[in-house]
Design a protein around this nucleic acid. Structure first.
Lengths: 201, 201
DNA sequence: ATTCGACTATTTTACTTGAATGGTCGAAAA
DNA sequence: TTTTCGACCATTCAAGTAAAATAGTCGAAT
């Protein structure tokens, strides 16, 4: 890897740690620069803006998540199993986002949010991945052929929706390990019965 | 109905109209008083605080919603049909809340929100109603006996979660008639397949 | 028992100002 | 040429403040 790329990585890593602890707005470029023992101005040699740096951090997490899912897709397993695994992985990724301070009310709902486009892109990617799983299930005869075309979307919305409850608690500073366990359980059960509902038998 | 009760009703009605248009904070007691041709101080004869007046408005809507559901529960119908009807009624009620300006980000998430307790109470009531439907389904042999005890809660969370997407769009001023139709469709389909999944056959 | 004008206390808003911070630039170093 | 950074600028943000708006009170009038 080139020297330039290595330094980029180091900056991203330092930024990631800071952002994970304090969230986007509470981290200054000076602090990140200090972590990698550079002047602030030097960061701007690698990243045009602070937002851009943050985007790079998130994008790395995202691509790792997507890679994980694609690995799951490649396995020799039933569509149901893949779906269950998908839900589990998604929850894990979600927790990373929480750590990145990306899931505060304001970051999610604020129109001007710099995260909005990122989320939209991820949603599109997820939809594609889910569609693959469902198509596979239909083609193999595991799922009913009558499944509506927008079922993947609905499934995704259900997952996103369940998540919101945790975000809400999180913003009331009431979220703890317990809450996540509960969410995990809810997602699993919901998935389980949805799968039962769409199976052919 | 007593004279006093009638005036209370009139005040609640005037308040409802104002709140529906402008939301809680953008309505002054003077305006409401003007609508019913009274002095502001007179309102305080009937309602101790502005919040209390608002609570009365919401409580009326809520009790109407619950009454609707209870009517549905009393019908001679399968648990599945009742569940479907429940979802439909819930969406209708939800739209009323939107009109009352109760579903902005701030009113939902703000810890200090005066609506919080109201929502919590409603949630508890809904849970009881849903439990009845599911128990009925299990006892009649329509639903599987293996249904987890917290399935009603999960079902409610799914409905609540799906709603969030619309709230989000609503806060971005992007919600329109179309969006609601979409939400209705999503809820119906999700309910349909969840029912399939929990049925005995 | 009910109404309301006049009053108070509190909250909200609009504005100011100084500090913090994102971002720029040209010179220096490697 | 590529990379670094000190010094600088422009913008944003926080804290404070004064004025306006508004929730809520009270005693007199009906």
């Amino acid at each position: 890897m080139s020297d330039e790329k290595l330094k980029e990585k180091a900056i991203i890593e330092a930024a990631r740690n800071r952002f994970a602890h304090f969230g986007f707005s509470k981290v200054t470029m000076d602090e990140i620069a200090g972590d990698v023992e550079m002047g602030k101005a030097s960061l701007y040699y690698y990243f045009p803006t602070k937002e851009d740096l943050f985007r790079s951090v998130v994008l790395e997490e995202q691509s790792e998540f997507v890679k994980n899912i694609e690995e799951i897709l490649g396995r020799h397993a039933s569509a149901s199993e893949k779906l269950n695994e998908y839900v589990a992985q998604r929850l894990k990724y979600f927790r990373d986002l929480v750590n990145l301070g990306m899931l505060s009310v304001h970051s999610i709902f604020d129109i001007k949010s710099i995260f909005k486009k990122l989320f939209e892109d991820l949603g599109k990617q997820e939809l594609i991945l889910l569609k693959k799983i469902f198509d596979e299930g239909i083609n193999s005869g595991e799922f009913t052929k009558e499944l509506p075309g927008d079922f993947p979307k609905i499934f995704l919305h259900i997952l996103q929706g369940l998540r919101f409850r945790v975000i809400k608690l999180f913003n009331e500073h009431k979220a703890n390990e317990e809450t996540y366990k509960e969410l995990e359980s809810e997602m699993k059960i919901a998935t389980q019965y949805l799968i039962k509902g769409i199976k052919c038998n």
